[in-house]
């Protein structure tokens, strides 16, 4: 275990409507065993000791599954490691003397609430537009009544692994949410349970995605590279396919 001396350039913004700016902090004795968020905990403890308000950042499970943590770390969503959330990023990925720039996710659809905390409810509204199977509780047939080929179930699971953190939007130069939407549309399109609402789902979710102000997909694959859950770009192709099919075959 060794320790690092770091310079942190952190975005501070008191509220949604107030202007923000970078503040520079110096931190010593950062253990390489720490997670990135634990490093921020230490920073906050120092700030409190100096009567400065701690930096606000979103986090919850700290084991990489809830999708609540975010952060653009040196220009990379969730930092330099691959298939990793910020909470699972460890300080051993940094070198002594490094300067680390920490910014919030930036997108019109993700307004900053405070410091590094952004509002990602746009993603919830996209799901509300159709990212589910409309089955009321209590009326389901026996779980084994419908067979699902293992390969389809596996592919659906690959897509369903999305943790909804918004890194795809953050990393995309156009702040596009296509990987997020593609993952949910793919999961449902691959499973027989999702078939009845297949067309309306994709049309409604894409319409909502556009309303929320996300950008267009340019197939740069930055989303895939930033995704902590390893969601593949093929899900975006499937989304496009599903959309084209639904648009061409819609009744009106």
């Amino acid at each position: 275990m060794s320790s690092l001396k770091l310079t942190l350039k952190v975005w501070r913004q008191p509220s949604r409507d107030e202007a923000g700016q970078f503040h520079t902090y110096h931190l010593e004795d950062v253990s390489t065993e720490m997670s990135f968020l634990e490093m921020l905990d230490v920073l906050n403890e120092n700030l409190i000791a100096q009567d400065e308000e701690p930096v606000a950042f979103d986090h919850d499970c700290r084991e990489g599954i809830c999708g609540m943590c975010s952060l653009m770390i040196n220009g990379q969503a969730h930092g330099p490691d691959n298939e990793t959330t910020t909470c699972q990023l460890h300080m051993r990925h940094f070198r002594d003397g490094d300067t680390i720039v920490i910014e919030p996710w930036r997108a019109k659809a993700f307004p900053v609430i405070r410091d590094l905390v952004v509002d990602r409810s746009a993603l919830d509204r996209v799901i509300a537009a159709g990212g589910y199977v409309s089955v009321n509780c209590g009326s389901a047939p026996d779980a084994n009544a419908v067979l699902v080929p293992k390969t389809d179930a596996d592919k659906a699971m690959d897509a369903a692994a999305c943790i909804g953190c918004g890194a795809c939007v953050a990393a995309c130069k156009n702040a596009s949410a296509m990987l997020f939407v593609g993952a949910k549309v793919s999961q449902m399109a691959l499973l027989p349970q999702g078939k009845p609402e297949r067309a309306s789902r994709v049309l409604n979710m894409v319409a909502r995605m556009d309303e929320e102000g996300f950008g267009n997909c340019t197939n740069t694959a930055e989303c895939e590279a930033a995704c902590p859950a390893g969601i593949s770009l093929s899900n975006i192709a499937r989304l496009n396919r599903e959309y084209l099919k639904a648009a061409l075959t819609a009744a009106n």
């Binding site: 199977v133 009326s139 779980a143 596996d154 999961q187 349970q193």
Partner: peptide, 22 residues
């Protein structure tokens, strides 16, 4: 048992056997 039925109907991608059963 009802829970499993409900979750499968919702599109929860449970692990499957090659024959397609859970």
């Amino acid at each position: 048992n009802l829970i499993i039925d409900q979750c499968v109907a919702q599109g929860v991608p449970f692990a499957r056997e090659y024959g397609g059963l859970l």
